[in-house]
């Protein structure tokens, strides 16, 4: 087998960069999909909560209050 030519090394160097960007795009794409799914679940939960609240209000339990919401804690990184 002949040793790789200069052309092969140049192609390998550019391929490394291309593959790295491709992997990065795939990771971000997967993350966006996860965030989209989580957002959908939260929207569904919020709707469910709203439906329950309006049902309980319609049912005559006007004195009942919604549970207090906990204070959020922001997390980074």
């Amino acid at each position: 087998m002949s040793p790789p030519s200069e052309w092969h090394y140049v192609a390998a160097a550019y391929l490394v960069v291309f593959v790295a960007v491709l992997i990065w795009v795939a990771i971000i794409g997967a993350k966006l999909q996860r965030l989209q799914r989580q957002l959908g679940e939260l929207v569904e939960q919020a709707r469910e909560r709203e439906r329950n609240m309006s049902r309980s209000l319609d049912g005559g339990s006007k004195g009942a209050e919604a549970p207090a919401l906990p204070a959020p804690e922001r997390e980074h990184g």
Binding site: I28, K31, L32, L35, Q38, L39, L42, Q45, A46, R49, P67, L69, P70, P72, E73, R74, E75, H76, G77
Partner: peptide, 22 residues
Amino acid sequence: NIELAGKRLDSSLRELRELLGT
């Protein structure tokens, strides 16, 4: 910009989840 937007979105979702108590 894309990674920062993703991280901020993630953080906002976490906050929203805590607000909804889930």
